[in-house]
Design a protein around this nucleic acid. Structure first.
Lengths: 186, 186, 186, 186
DNA sequence: ATATAAACGAGACGGTACGTCCCGTCTTGTT
DNA sequence: AACAAGACGGGACGTACCGTCTCGTTTATAT
């Protein structure tokens, strides 16, 4: 058997990718530049990731894991507000915002990456939202016939929409969004 | 002795850009390829547009003009439904969908283009929505304190969200969206 | 019509190639290094030459032209001695020696280059030798049935042989060679 | 306690090297490819040979041993003709020709290999030729002052010359060569 | 017969160069 | 002056190998 994967190189590559996205735009970074900055051979990137986008996806996913893990306090709307606020925080204060924008950009000409982005970030969010909804309905917080899928699209879609178009994303903005989306189901 | 701008070349370039976007993804097309397919020198593109994205923006804007012009029938929600349905139609049956996705992608690493996209496509939509809202409020169709800006974000943001993530965009989907967004203001 | 070929770049490339061969061995030089040293884009080399070897062949051919032009003095053996001595001089004092060794090396895995080497360097030499032989035979200096083709092979082959194997190549060595080869035909 | 060298691996490597040289040119084969084809780890090659050329030299030397062993029949020129004919046979019918061309090519940028090639193939031939010459001179077949070193250069150099330049190498060609070289010494 | 250390297959690693594509600028001659 | 054609210096692509470096896993003595 061969020497197995070198964890130090993996970290150096992900760190280099994140740090470069923060400074430069998506297509101003190159695999060559990531390799150079990480002190790594190009092949070591190509060996483990199919594309530049896949590297960034892996880096981005790591930052996101904390947010998904937020607990269920018994107040559905408040929990969603907390989660959305955490996402806004992540977007505006860490490298996650630029990284996510890169993924969106790269995904538009790389179906595999777009699918991976969905599977790794959106699908878990859908599942999380579904489970929270079910519990809220059991508790009687929400009408049983509420169209939770569309509600989720609206809530997370509008955040992505404003991120992508570089429109302001302040926590207060969430108030209006939540009021409109949850008006009919309380 | 001064030749002025050659309209035939302009059309050939826009047509080539649109047709290539339909077939290939965004960054699989190049200015060289557009020039080649249009039978045009590269310089002729660089002379009139600052970037590949600007060419596509000009092509995309042309397709969009028809939709904005939809009349005000006196039923606000119905009018918005009509407009959104027209946008869905445009996205799914013409080259507008792929072109718009390209613009989003290109904009993530080209702030000038992102701004141009906002000014030429989103800002007019905001203005149109504002005017329609005002008239609806005057007619008593909508509460005077409705947060129309957030409502617009939700409506058009969710369409863009599903477009970008290659999720289905069928007309019936609009029903749920409209019901949620307009629940509180009727 | 396009801008035509840039003579300055051509010279810079050939000069860089020759100077690098002098310092380093054949496969220690790369097209990238030639381009770098010549201050030229790689594509400018690939545009005009099919391979590294072809660049060197062109450079080598230039140095050689002077030697072929030696006059016919009326003494065949003396003329050939003069020519061979000039070749030895070229090999030992200019970059021609290393360049020719490179071409031999490259030709062993590039039939096109080997053929080009033959056409541009060996074939002219054969023709030159044939013509000189014919004149010498007319003058009665040489027997009419002399096997001039084999004689030429022996004369120039042995020089190449000693060059290739890095054996000494002093002018006096030619005496013995000429004595053996021309013994029977005087 | 130490495991000693694995003869099976050695054979597999040499066989793979020879078979690949037959099919592809010198620098189209790589150590990786030899290792792959031989079913051997790369390190096993690096452990025992300093370079790709050294592997080929070892392989080539094996094929050559039979030729050197040809006996001394008492007719010097005939013996040399026999030996040269055997070399031609070896070159044209076995993998020795391509292998030797590789060695020449590799040697042009690897002085160590060039030296090894000389020591293992050329030097023994010089010694063999010297001994045969001495015996022929004792027998009165050849003049005592014959310049045997240059004669040898001419005889074997011309064969290598035609091999390297991919010129025909038929047995009849030897007649002309031998006649010229041995004309003055009989 | 057993332990033990070198040799082995496999292949990951930091690199260099490959030959190609495209960038944005430029030059040339044509319309 | 605008145009088509395309050469130019340059940068990045994704691939192939380089020679070095672990990894376990044979395997042939030296006990």
């Amino acid at each position: 058997m061969p020497a197995s994967r070198n964890e130090q190189s993996r970290r150096a590559i992900l760190d280099a990718a994140i740090s470069m996205i923060g400074e430069l735009g998506y297509d101003h970074i190159s695999i060559e530049a990531i390799a150079r900055q990480a002190g790594v051979g190009k092949q070591t990137i190509y060996r483990w990731w199919p594309s530049k986008g896949a590297v960034i996806l892996e880096a981005a996913t790591e930052s996101l894991s904390a947010v998904v893990a937020l607990p269920d306090t018994g107040d559905f709307v408040a929990d969603i507000r907390t989660q959305l606020a955490a996402i806004l925080e992540l977007i505006t204060t860490t490298g996650f915002g630029p990284a996510y924008r890169c993924l969106i950009a790269a995904g538009q000409s790389d179906p595999d990456l777009l699918r991976a982005l969905f599977d790794r970030i959106i699908a878990p969010n859908i599942e999380d939202f579904r489970a929270r909804t079910a519990r809220a309905q059991q508790r009687g917080e929400m009408r049983a016939d509420a169209d939770w899928q569309t509600m989720r699209d609206l809530l997370y879609g509008v955040v992505e929409y404003r991120l992508i178009h570089a429109m302001p994303l302040e926590p207060e903005y969430l108030d209006g969004v939540l009021e409109i989306v949850f008006q009919g189901v309380r």
